[in-house]
Write a protein that binds this DNA or RNA. Structure first.
Length: 301
RNA sequence: GGUGCCAUAGCUCAGUCGGUAGAGCAACGGACUGAAAAUCCGUGUGUCCCCGGUUCGAUUCCUGGUGGCACCA
């Protein structure tokens, strides 16, 4: 039998953690977490990392292994996962990856093109240019350096433009020349399972979970991280809203309300990301037996 | 019980001197290859409370209901 990577994915609050642990204990496998904010050890409450009890029951990887000050990316995640997998497969033919970060999941499952690393100073330079001269200036540079990408990129999205520009500048080649979309050949089989539930149900769960986070001390966690608010990791739902409250821009109740709303919007964006992925087999998180049955059936192929 | 005011989108409300309606918030849909819980784009979703009347035509005017609010009892 070929090695198998079971991928469990779904929007925030759908109930992934529970099913993942049930599924992993059924197959006796370890879990690779794929939630880009659960990577940071300083952010525990606001990112809903599994409880100590859950973490003790099943071995988890990539949970709270970085500091918010560390640079990390989908590329690095792919590399780290590939480093880890042989060891995991030597213990069990099945490994389970669970999470909600679509791009990170895709980086592992579909691969990501090999593009040189960039100097952070270059990104800083373009960010400065953006805030001082506006997006028009970035567009003009891109049109010159990479007309092909200019023609297809969302010209109102400064992040995309800056990403392309920093690659152009670092390599001296157009960004588009790196985008080969070659699917890497995996020496393991992937079974993708998605979780969803009725929208109202999902939103009620999100709302309840935010209330629980607040009870557990999210405000205090955010206060301790307030000094790092400019770091990308802290531009996350649950933290940025509290920073606004600390600054006196909004009330505490309003902050909590916005955390709920922004979580809903995040869930929607996640679902949009997966909407086009035909490999995903969708389940309700309560259908644990069906999920296990589906995995067993697929594993024989 | 009486009088007055109100009833329009999921919510708060605007509006139509009679030609089936629009703001904010919420919501919905989408894009996205190294910052992705980020970043960006698009979309009014409606028995205008109900039954009648006047009218070519009523969400709008009129009668009567129903519900809500206020005041008087």
């Amino acid at each position: 039998m070929k090695n198998i990577l079971i991928v469990l994915l779904g929007p925030t609050g759908v109930g992934k953690t529970d099913v993942s642990i049930k599924t992993a204990s059924h197959f006796g496998c370890e879990i690779i977490s794929c939630d880009s904010r659960q990577f940071y050890r300083e952010m525990r409450i606001g990112t809903a990392v599994p409880s100590d009890l859950q973490l003790n029951r099943i071995k988890h990887h990539f949970i709270r292994f970085l500091s918010v000050k560390d640079y990390y990316s989908a590329n690095l995640f792919e590399r780290d996962v590939y480093k880890l997998l042989p060891g995991l497969f030597s213990r069990n033919k099945m490994v389970l990856m669970s999470g909600g970060s679509g791009m990170y999941i895709d980086a592992v499952c579909s691969g990501i093109d090999d593009i040189p690393d960039i100097d952070p100073a270059i990104r800083a330079k373009y960010n400065k240019k953006h805030s001082e001269e506006g997006i028009g200036s970035l567009r003009m540079s891109l049109k010159l350096l990479d007309p092909e990408y200019y023609a297809k990129v969302d010209l109102r999205n400064y992040r995309r433009i800056i990403r392309a520009l920093e690659i152009c500048e670092t390599t001296g080649l157009p960004y588009s020349s790196f985008l080969k979309k070659e699917k890497s050949i995996k020496e393991f089989h992937i079974i993708k399972i998605g979780f969803n539930r009725e929208r109202n149900d999902l939103y009620e769960r999100i709302s309840k979970r935010v209330d629980e986070m607040v009870e557990q001390g999210l405000e205090e966690e955010a206060r301790q991280l307030s000094g790092f608010r400019d770091l990308n990791a802290l531009k996350s739902v649950g933290y940025r809203e509290f920073f606004d409250f600390f600054d006196g821009n909004i009330s505490r109740d309003k902050a909590v309300e916005l955390i709920k709303r922004n979580s809903r919007r995040y869930a929607k964006r996640q679902l949009t990301w997966w909407g086009k992925d035909k490999d995903i087999k969708w389940f309700h998180p309560d259908e644990v037996q069906d999920i296990i049955g589906y995995i067993e059936k697929e594993a024989r192929v």
